[in-house]
Nucleic acid binder design. Structure first.
Lengths: 132, 132
DNA sequence: CCTTCACTTAACCAATACGTTAAATGTAAT
DNA sequence: ATTACATTTAACGTATTGGTTAAGTGAAGG
């Protein structure tokens, strides 16, 4: 996806298994393009472009080392992605705090009623740009 | 992206701001397609297909309610995504455990040496399919 | 220098993504 | 039955993605 916004760029980058494999590799150590390409079943130019995508999402940084170019993991954008997802933790986490348990119960109760708003034909939707 | 695997499908689904907005809406309450489409600047068919993508990633479930179709948030796949990202927490989190602090220090030390493997022209890469 | 090595860019291709409008489907209501 | 409403599917256009091979570019090394 064209990086419309930062978070989209990060999720988009993570959507590709090859790129996730590259990040996993970089978690162990910085690496050159050739090193990263070695275990992958694709050509070097393909790897080069995956790296460009990761760089575009700010998930890696790169520097020249003589003949080589080293890639380094930059995890800050992963924090943003994690933060976004965290908002939904209460929907799956079973080890809830007392307050969260209450809120989850309310949520569940609301769901048990089996209806959303009584009359969905009269939607009272607020424009919800709480987050993207 | 075509759902090559579950995790890719989830990250791919999250890569679109419209779909993230839909999930945010569903965090508050179940909703019909019309309700979800109301605040969005796109046509109903477009929303319908975003919902199909979310359903394909198992991020929502749907049921018929008479004339309407209600969408419900299903957060389990978000847990998987969060779990994947969590592995990288030590790279950004400043509140480290004692062990993590040690590991991070080792990591940092390795980076200070400014070189990856002494001679990158002789890469000793293991095929790292530790994870996708 | 001139070659070699590491990598990127260019040009191309097939498949997918995301939007549109128009037509089809299914349920409800008259 | 007929009409209306909610939603999906079809058909279409354009942009992006992810891969390829072939042709640059830049630094090292003989």
């Amino acid at each position: 996806m064209a990086a419309t916004d930062q978070l989209s760029a990060v999720f988009s980058a993570l959507a590709d298994p090859t790129r996730r494999a590259i990040l996993a590799e970089l978690a162990d150590r910085d690496a050159t393009v050739t090193e990263l390409a070695a275990p992958l079943p694709i050509s070097m130019p393909a790897v080069s472009r995956h790296l460009k995508v990761l760089e575009g999402a700010a998930l890696i940084s790169r520097r020249r080392l003589g003949k080589w170019r080293a890639s380094r993991l930059e995890a800050a954008p992963l924090r943003d992605a994690a933060d976004w997802i965290e908002r939904y933790r209460r929907f799956w986490d079973s080890s809830l705090t007392r307050l969260d348990a209450h809120l989850a119960a309310v949520q569940a109760a609301g769901r048990e009623t089996e209806g959303m708003a009584q009359d969905p034909s009269v939607p009272d939707n607020k424009v919800l740009d709480k987050e993207l």
